[in-house]
Computed example of a mutant assay.
Amino acid sequence: MLHLILDREAADRFAALTMTSLDELDLAPLPASYSIVFAYHAGQFPELATEVQAMLADPATATSQHCEAIYRRHFGSEPMLADYDETIRSLGRGVTEIADLLRTTSGHDRRFGVIGTELAALAGTADGAARNTLERICQELAALAQENRRLRAGVTERIEASTRSIARVSARFEVERARSRTDPLTRIGNRRCLDEEMHRHPLASLILADIDHFKRFNDSYGHKAGDLILVAFARILRQTAGSHGLAARFGGEEFAILLPDTTLAEATDVAERARTMLEGMAKITTKTGRSLSKVTASFGVAEGRAGEPPEALIERADRALYLAKNGGRNRVVAAVEAPA
Rank of each mutant, 00 (worst) to 15 (best):
residue 1 M to K: 09
residue 3 H to C: 05
residue 5 I to N: 15
residue 10 A to Y: 01
residue 14 F to S: 03
residue 16 A to G: 03
residue 25 L to G: 03
residue 28 A to F: 10
residue 30 L to I: 11
residue 30 L to F: 03
residue 31 P to E: 06
residue 33 S to C: 04
residue 34 Y to E: 04
residue 34 Y to T: 10
residue 35 S to F: 02
residue 37 V to S: 02
residue 37 V to I: 15
residue 37 V to L: 13
residue 38 F to R: 06
residue 39 A to F: 07
residue 41 H to T: 04
residue 44 Q to G: 06
residue 45 F to P: 00
residue 47 E to M: 11
residue 49 A to G: 07
residue 51 E to K: 08
residue 51 E to W: 02
residue 60 A to I: 14
residue 61 T to S: 11
residue 62 A to H: 04
residue 63 T to P: 01
residue 64 S to R: 07
residue 64 S to V: 13
residue 68 E to W: 08
residue 70 I to Q: 08
residue 72 R to S: 07
residue 76 G to L: 05
residue 77 S to N: 08
residue 80 M to F: 10
residue 80 M to H: 11
residue 84 Y to R: 08
residue 84 Y to I: 05
residue 90 S to W: 01
residue 91 L to V: 12
residue 92 G to D: 09
residue 103 R to S: 13
residue 109 D to W: 01
residue 114 V to F: 07
residue 116 G to I: 12
residue 121 A to I: 04
residue 126 A to G: 02
residue 126 A to W: 03
residue 134 L to C: 06
residue 135 E to S: 06
residue 139 Q to D: 14
residue 145 A to K: 11
residue 148 N to L: 09
residue 153 A to Q: 14
residue 156 T to K: 14
residue 159 I to P: 05
residue 161 A to T: 11
residue 167 A to K: 12
residue 171 A to C: 05
residue 175 V to E: 15
residue 177 R to G: 03
residue 179 R to S: 12
residue 180 S to R: 11
residue 180 S to G: 13
residue 181 R to D: 10
residue 187 R to I: 05
residue 192 R to G: 10
residue 196 E to H: 09
residue 198 M to S: 06
residue 200 R to Y: 07
residue 203 L to S: 11
residue 207 I to W: 04
residue 208 L to H: 03
residue 210 D to S: 08
residue 212 D to S: 05
residue 213 H to T: 03
residue 214 F to A: 11
residue 215 K to A: 15
residue 215 K to H: 13
residue 219 D to E: 09
residue 220 S to W: 01
residue 221 Y to F: 15
residue 224 K to Y: 07
residue 226 G to I: 05
residue 228 L to M: 15
residue 230 L to K: 04
residue 232 A to T: 14
residue 234 A to W: 01
residue 236 I to S: 01
residue 236 I to P: 00
residue 237 L to F: 09
residue 237 L to K: 02
residue 240 T to F: 00
residue 241 A to D: 05
residue 242 G to V: 06
residue 256 A to N: 04
residue 264 L to S: 13
residue 265 A to F: 05
residue 266 E to W: 02
residue 267 A to E: 06
residue 268 T to P: 00
residue 272 E to D: 15
residue 273 R to H: 04
residue 274 A to E: 02
residue 275 R to L: 01
residue 277 M to N: 09
residue 278 L to T: 04
residue 283 K to D: 12
residue 284 I to F: 09
residue 286 T to E: 13
residue 291 S to N: 12
residue 295 V to Y: 01
residue 295 V to C: 08
residue 296 T to W: 01
residue 296 T to D: 04
residue 300 G to S: 05
residue 301 V to L: 04
residue 303 E to D: 10
residue 303 E to N: 09
residue 305 R to V: 08
residue 306 A to N: 07
residue 307 G to E: 11
residue 310 P to Y: 11
residue 312 A to V: 14
residue 316 R to W: 07
residue 319 R to D: 10
residue 321 L to Y: 05
residue 321 L to M: 08
residue 323 L to P: 00
residue 323 L to I: 02
residue 324 A to W: 02
residue 329 R to L: 06
residue 331 R to Y: 01
